[in-house]
């Protein structure tokens, strides 16, 4: 039997959060953490978590799994269990709504701040805008972000300044548009980021890189933005 310890908090019932212990029969299988949560929910329907695609592309089930942020649906027990124990908590640093569900408004607000959409005011051609495979390759490692918030909620700089520091996820998306040969708003985008907090609160701790379930590298993207900001200032 696997020992599972889960963060519980229902604002209507609990004065404060607590860790609840469960035992789960995994039948020796290397289940995903999400499978374990589903088993537990079948027993205790009051347990609450988000989930959708169960294959690591929708970004719903970001949570803190035995100390590391990740997606429950693609984290196998073999990676998460230590000494026969699995510990599941909500992603850190944002308010908890209930159990493993956090309030992500601050995270989304930072995403919206970077104008996460193509800006190109020149008249569109009758077909697609052309882009070479080399230009398109610059978007690889950027556009795949699933907005799961594993990175930003693992970032101490985001914990301190969630309202002012864009955070790794938002900055990765900022660079996704800066790097796109079809986007023409580079100056405007850089001007919007040019303050002491939006980008420069990144101290290169690289927790974001360590936890990203899609293997993306926000620190590298932030480095590119820094260079662009410095170059545009001179």
């Amino acid at each position: 039997m696997l020992n599972v310890s889960i963060y519980r908090y229902n604002p209507e019932v609990d004065a404060e959060p607590y860790m609840q212990d469960f035992k789960v029969d995994t039948q020796g299988k290397d289940l995903m953490v999400l499978d374990v949560l589903e088993k537990l929910k079948a027993e205790d329907p009051t347990l609450v978590f988000r989930r959708s695609c169960r294959e690591g592309v929708c970004g719903s089930d970001g949570m803190n799994i035995s100390g590391k942020n990740g997606l429950a649906c693609v984290t196998p027990l073999s990676e998460a269990v230590k000494k026969n124990k699995l510990v599941v908590r909500p992603l850190p640093g944002l308010p908890v709504i209930r159990d493993l569900v956090i309030d992500m408004s601050q995270f989304y607000a930072q995403y919206e701040k970077i104008q996460p959409y193509m800006i190109n005011n020149s008249p569109a051609p009758a077909i697609e805008r052309l882009q070479s495979p080399e230009e398109r390759a610059k978007l690889d490692g950027l556009y795949e972000c699933i907005l799961c918030a594993c990175c930003s909620t693992a970032c101490p700089s985001f914990w301190w300044n969630p309202d002012k520091f864009i955070g790794p996820s938002g900055l990765l998306q900022a660079y996704r548009f800066l790097a796109d040969s079809r986007d023409t708003a580079t100056e405007e985008r850089l001007a919007n980021l040019d303050d002491p907090f939006s980008v420069f609160r990144c101290h290169g701790i690289m927790n974001c890189v360590q936890v990203c379930p899609k293997g993306l590298n926000p620190t590298k993207a932030i480095g590119h933005i820094r260079n662009m900001l410095i170059n545009s200032a001179t």
Partner: peptide, 14 residues
């Protein structure tokens, strides 16, 4: 595509 969808590309850029 004009909205920014990052399609893969051919050598001709299409």
């Amino acid at each position: 595509e004009h909205m920014g969808l990052p399609f893969s590309r051919t050598e001709e850029g299409r």
